[in-house]
Design a protein around this nucleic acid. Structure first.
Lengths: 209, 209
DNA sequence: GATATATAATGACCACTGGTCAGTTATATT
DNA sequence: AATATAACTGACCAGTGGTCATTATATATC
């Protein structure tokens, strides 16, 4: 049945178009300042139609999370190319995460809001699962050099995933706190310096703690 | 003029009553789920009156920040009592911060939202300034043992405030990410373990990095 | 081609939001 | 008692996310 397939394709196409319009607005204005009316207008559809393709505003927003995590995954992979040894790899991943937060601030933000559960109150279980796995995939990637370091007896820790979460959370927190409103920025110094201090501290700590 | 003074007292009293009602609702439901109508009803006042005492919803919310930071400051002071040496003090402060985030989750959250600038778009400059100073006060407290460690040549870093911000941001990030919605919590293991790993890593790092 | 069926899209409508302001009420001064 | 000042009210506004009976469009059957 070619017709059914074509219809399915068309439906998928519409879905992507809505998501594209939503992405533009969400990225320009953030989650709360973006309205469903606005998205409908941008997608040249009526508001009701949006709800035929997405359960609600949150689901529309969180659907972008997967794209973001795929981007980050690519960045991670690229970062460890030509890098040897767990320490070099770890440093590269840390800086790649920082770079990701600058180049794709909105995706970085969506991920935080997802992980933090701010915007996940109504998300359906299967979308949640997909997004969850996308994050865990990146955490796993981060835990590989940690495992290597432990296997080599150079890292005195026994739970690579927990350590990965600690590193990830630490950088995330520093970046977030440094994001304060532009003209009265909260934290002193450049974010670059803070990230450098943090990475140095934590890697030095891994070797001796 | 006793009358003017009495009026001033009464006005201050009303202000505090409104803030009390707002605090109850904000703590129960969070910032977004709390409505000005609800606060007005809880304070047994009309909605319009709220706006005679507070510029808007954000200002009402952020006004709670100062109380939170004072609480944290007390907790910090208590934590370092009977503690000697920069390392012991640093550890105590770290755990006190963690404990604060558990005992006063809502205050912890307000502080994050303030520092992050989510809820500060319209806050007046002088309220912002007060809240800002309240945070900096705690960051300064955190930087004291760091200075001591540096003066003693045991910490190989030269910017105590930057390091304080790194430690503060790291714990904040880990705590936030672990807060995900209850029934499908995001991160593995207990938060306690993660905090322990983080504190150990960073203190070990301070000694060698 | 005409008719019936299934699918897709609409936009008026709902209860609600944060915020405003002309008008009312209470208090203080003369 | 009359005036002036300060405090408070709630109907009102433009906007929100979300719903659903209705309408339009494309497909299947005769």
């Amino acid at each position: 049945m070619g017709i059914k397939e074509r219809r399915k394709r068309e439906k998928e196409h519409r879905r992507r178009e809505i998501l594209k319009a939503a992405k533009t607005l969400f990225f320009e204005q953030g989650f709360f300042a973006t309205s469903m009316n606005g998205i409908a207008k941008a997608a040249e559809l009526s508001k009701g139609t949006l709800y035929l393709y997405f359960k609600d505003k949150e689901e529309l927003y969180i659907s972008l999370q997967i794209e973001g995590m795929e981007l980050l995954n690519k960045a991670f992979n690229k970062a460890v190319e030509n890098k040897t040894g767990w320490e070099e790899k770890l440093r590269a991943i840390g800086w790649a995460y920082y770079q990701f937060s600058r180049d794709h601030q909105q995706f970085f933000h969506i991920n935080f809001q997802f992980q933090h559960g701010e915007i996940t109150r109504s998300t359906s279980d299967d979308l949640f699962q997909k997004c969850y796995e996308a994050v865990v995939h990146n955490l796993n990637f981060l835990s590989i050099p940690l495992k290597n370091g432990m296997a080599a007896g150079q890292i005195r820790q026994d739970n690579p995933m927990a350590v990965a979460v600690v590193l990830w959370g630490s950088l995330t927190g520093i970046i977030l706190l440094h994001e304060g409103k532009d003209h009265r920025k909260f934290m002193p110094g450049s974010l670059n310096d803070l990230i450098e201090i943090s990475i140095n501290l934590q890697i030095a700590g891994l070797k001796t703690a």
